[in-house]
């Protein structure tokens, strides 16, 4: 399966970025082959609806799961419609994308069945 992780950088040891819509980048890892790809987040410069745009972006990248630190209601709705499972990486200590992937693979991450916060105003 393909899992997307929000990160700040473009390498496996880049730190995890807890924001979803405003994450600097996403990596997509194929957990079967271990292949990594890195993608700048096009929603970073969006004036509004960053979560919606980022969600469509990772859907297009073929992700079936995503790991981030928080999901707004609109991002969550879009990810759910795309049948992408949302996972939360807890804690604030800096971790690399590779460490997050380990946690994901060993089933230590909790799914986010709902938005984690009330979202931002669109105006």
């Amino acid at each position: 399966m393909n899992v997307a992780i929000s990160i700040a950088g473009q390498t496996p040891d880049a730190p995890f970025d807890a924001r979803f819509g405003r994450a600097e980048s996403f990596c997509v890892v194929d957990t079967d082959t271990g292949a990594w790809t890195f993608h700048a987040n096009p929603a970073l410069s969006a004036s509004g609806g960053a979560g919606v745009l980022a969600a469509q972006f990772i859907a297009r990248l073929g992700a079936q799961a995503v790991v981030s630190g928080a999901y707004g209601p609109k991002a969550h709705r879009t990810l759910s419609a795309a049948r992408i499972e949302c996972f939360l990486a807890p804690g604030n200590e800096a971790r690399s994308a590779a460490e997050i992937l380990d946690a994901f693979n060993s089933g230590r991450l909790t799914p986010a069945d709902d938005a984690t916060h009330g979202g931002h105003h669109g105006d």
Partner: peptide
């Protein structure tokens, strides 16, 4: 404004955006 999204076969509209 990213107020309309298309994922897979689904189209979503976000009125508040």
């Amino acid at each position: 404004f990213n107020a309309i999204a298309v994922v897979g076969e689904t189209t979503l509209v976000f009125d508040d955006l």
